[in-house]
Amino acid sequence: MNRYIKLKICYVMMVWILHCSYNVFGCTSTTAQYKQIGDSVTLEFQATMTNSLDTSIIVSNVISSNNGSTLLGIAYRDGVLLNSPTCNGCTITGNVTTGDLSIRLDNLQTSNSGTYKLSVTEAIHEVKGCIILYILGKPEKPTIQSNNNNSIEGMNVKLTCMSRSTTNPSDPNLNLQYDWRVDTEDNPQVYEYSQTKNILTIKNLDRQDAKKRFTCKATESGSSVTGLTSNYSDEFMLNVLYGPDGCEISVKSPVTVKVGSISPLIKCRSDCYPLCTYKWTNASSGSSIVSANGDFEIDSITRYHTGNYACECGNSATEIGTTHTEILQIIV
């Protein structure tokens, strides 16, 4: 076996080993490009122009699109261009005679996203390089959720802003960063935020928080790219349960009335959400109920109406069932 034949056999064996490696590991090199709809992009590939073991063998270079169709096919022998290439749906921007196979795609659409490959055929077909083209999209309009839809005053509450990337294809190296607006203020420092600001924590919830309007937005970003920002979410308002703080009676105790007269309308009020419940009882006669609402009056006073009357204000919606009692003394 002469030296030339041995060299050919070694070459074929080496190519076969490389072929197996490529089948396992895919592209030998991969880069990424990030663009938006309507942009142009230049994809830079470098041709293999000479067979390293046998310069007489033609080297074929093919750039394929994200859907596998051929964009550009070009052949070399010993560093010399053998054909006049044309680009299918693209523009050649590189100097193909020197192996620069750069091409430009214009007016990009979501359908252009994906992996573009340079395949080289020497003795067998191999993928030499890949470029992943990401088409950045505006994140979906976020939604806001609370960890407690009926929060009690004094609790800690977490609001979560949720959106989703529309970049195609999905890129695990991109993350969504969030920003909040409370009424007209951006990211108020009175709140705590998670690292990506998707969670806003309200410490020691106050009933005034129920009047505030929370909105949020999402921006996609990575180590080398800042993507698009979503629209703001719809307004979110908290449902804060509170009260009663105490009971207030509309007259000052004691109240003196005459026998046979009608007592003044006595009102008992407090501040609650949802609305307070009220109950008047005669504390001097075994706490019998004399009124099931906040208003209390006696139509015809007798001496037996003398005593202490208690107004109880409550809120069954709060977890502790808060109640407060105020005593009214009636003297006949």
Rank of each mutant, 00 (worst) to 15 (best):
T318N: 13
S113Q: 07
T226Y: 00
M237V: 11
V240Y: 07
G260P: 04
K141N: 08
I57F: 00
S52C: 05
Q177T: 11
I330F: 03
D39P: 01
E312Q: 15
Y76G: 01
Y22Q: 13
I320C: 07
C311P: 05
S60H: 10
C130G: 01
Q177C: 04
V255L: 15
K279D: 01
L82V: 07
G321M: 10
I132V: 15
E126A: 13
A32R: 12
F45S: 02
C313P: 00
V290K: 07
I57R: 12
D171E: 08
E122C: 02
G114R: 04
D245I: 03
S69C: 01
E126S: 12
V24M: 12
C247G: 15
L275P: 12
V259M: 12
A32E: 10
D271I: 09
I298S: 08
V120A: 00
M155T: 14
E192R: 15
S230A: 09
T167W: 05
H305S: 09
G89P: 02
S224D: 14
W280R: 02
L18H: 10
T55L: 06
V190K: 14
G286Q: 08
G89Q: 08
T121N: 11
I37H: 00
Y232C: 00
G154R: 06
A210T: 03
A47V: 01
I152D: 13
T97E: 14
I298M: 06
I124W: 12
D179W: 02
I9Q: 15
N66C: 04
I199L: 09
M14Y: 12
T277C: 08
S230V: 01
S221M: 12
L105F: 08
Y242D: 02
T98D: 13
D171V: 00
V259T: 15
P139N: 03
S224N: 15
N198Q: 11
T196A: 10
G321N: 15
